[in-house]
Computed example of a mutant assay.
Amino acid sequence: MKRIVLAGGCFWGMEAYFERLNGVVKTEVGYANGDTKEPTYKEVCSNTTGHAEVLDINYDPERISLETLLMHFWKVIDPTLLNRQGGDVGSQYRTGIYFVDEADVPTIERSRDEEQKKYEKPIVTEVLPLDYYYPAETYHQMYLKKNPGGYCHIKLD
C-alpha cells in the first residue's frame, strides 16, 4: 500500500472523484500542512490555520500508479490558480501534492513539469512533504455520497 495526499480545492469533490478509481483502496478527507493541531472545519475556513483541505489516498501501486493518480489530479484542477478552485476561495483551497515517501518526488516533479507545458502561466501547486495531517469531521467523509446534490467544482460524470 502507498499513500499520497492531494489538495485540489473543496475536498468533497476530490474524494468523490478519486474514490471511484480502480486501485484506490481508501480515501479520507482532512486538513494538512497548517500551523494548528486538530483544526476544525470552521477554523480552517477562517483562513487563520494555514491548513489546506486535502484528500488522503491509500492506493495499491500494483493496480494504479502514482503517475496515473497525478494524471487524474491535473485533470480536475486548474494548477495556475492560487488559493481557489471553482467557486471556492481561500488559502484552504490551494492546490498541493503532499508526499510521505521521498522516493515519489521525482515522479511528482516530472508530472508537474509535463503539465506545465500546457499552460502559459506558472503552476502554483505546492509540492511538499506531508508535515501534518488531521482527519476532517465525520460529516465531511464521503459527503457527496451522503448528499448527492451537494456542491462540487469537479465534473463527476
Results as ranks from 00 to 15, higher is better:
Leu55Phe: 08
Arg84Ile: 07
Tyr31Val: 02
Phe73Lys: 07
Val25Ser: 09
Tyr98Phe: 15
Asp60Ala: 13
Val76Thr: 14
Gly90Phe: 09
Ser65Asp: 10
Asp78Trp: 08
Cys10Ala: 10
Leu66Trp: 14
Met142Ala: 13
Lys145Gly: 11
Glu28Ser: 14
Lys75Arg: 15
Val24Asn: 03
Val100Phe: 01
Gly96Lys: 07
Leu81Asn: 09
His140Leu: 05
Asp101Phe: 04
Pro129Gln: 02
Val5Asp: 03
Ile97Trp: 04
Asp35Val: 11
His140Thr: 01
Ile108Gln: 03
Glu28Pro: 01
Phe73Asn: 10
Gly9Ala: 07
Glu102Tyr: 00
Ile57Phe: 06
Glu43Gly: 12
Arg94Cys: 11
Glu114Tyr: 06
Ser46Thr: 10
Leu128Thr: 01
His72Gln: 12
Glu38Asp: 15
Gly50His: 08
Arg63His: 14
Asn147Lys: 06
Asp60Asn: 15
Ile97His: 07
Glu115Asn: 08
Glu109Ser: 03
Glu53Leu: 06
Trp74Ala: 11
Tyr59Gly: 05
Leu82Ile: 13
Arg20Gly: 07
Gly13Asn: 11
Asn47Leu: 07
Pro39Trp: 07
Val100Lys: 12
Thr80Leu: 10
Glu115Ser: 11
Leu70Gln: 06
Glu102Pro: 00
Trp12Ala: 01
Asp60Arg: 05
Tyr93Cys: 11
Met71Glu: 15
Lys75Val: 01
Tyr17Val: 08
Arg20Val: 05
Tyr93Pro: 09
Thr80Asn: 09
Gly9Ser: 04
Pro61Met: 06
Glu109Asn: 10
Thr40His: 02
Lys37Cys: 02
Thr80Cys: 10
Phe99Pro: 04
Glu67Asn: 15
Tyr41Arg: 07
Gly23Val: 06
Thr40Glu: 00
Ala136Ser: 14
Thr95Glu: 04
Tyr98Asn: 05
Arg20Asn: 13
Lys146Arg: 14
Gly34Glu: 10
Tyr31Ser: 00
Ser111Phe: 04
Met142Arg: 15
Gly13Arg: 14
Tyr134Met: 00
Pro79Leu: 13
Val76Cys: 12
Thr27Tyr: 12
Lys42Asn: 08
Phe11Ser: 02
Ser91Gln: 14
Asp56Val: 03
Val44Cys: 06
Val76Asp: 04
Ile108Gly: 00
Thr68Leu: 12
Val105Glu: 06
Ala7Val: 02
Tyr98Met: 07
Glu19Asn: 15
Glu115Lys: 13
Leu81Met: 10
Asn83Thr: 03
Asp104Leu: 02
Val25Gln: 13
Trp12Val: 03
Asp104Ile: 04
Leu69Val: 05
Ala103Asn: 12
Val5Ser: 06
Leu130Glu: 09
Trp12Gly: 01
Thr95Ser: 15
Leu66Gln: 09
Ser65Ala: 13
Thr125Ser: 12
Asn22Glu: 11
Leu70Lys: 08
Asp88Ser: 12
Pro79Phe: 10
Glu62Ile: 13
Leu6Asp: 03
Val100Met: 07
Glu67Asp: 14
Ala103His: 09
Leu130Asn: 04
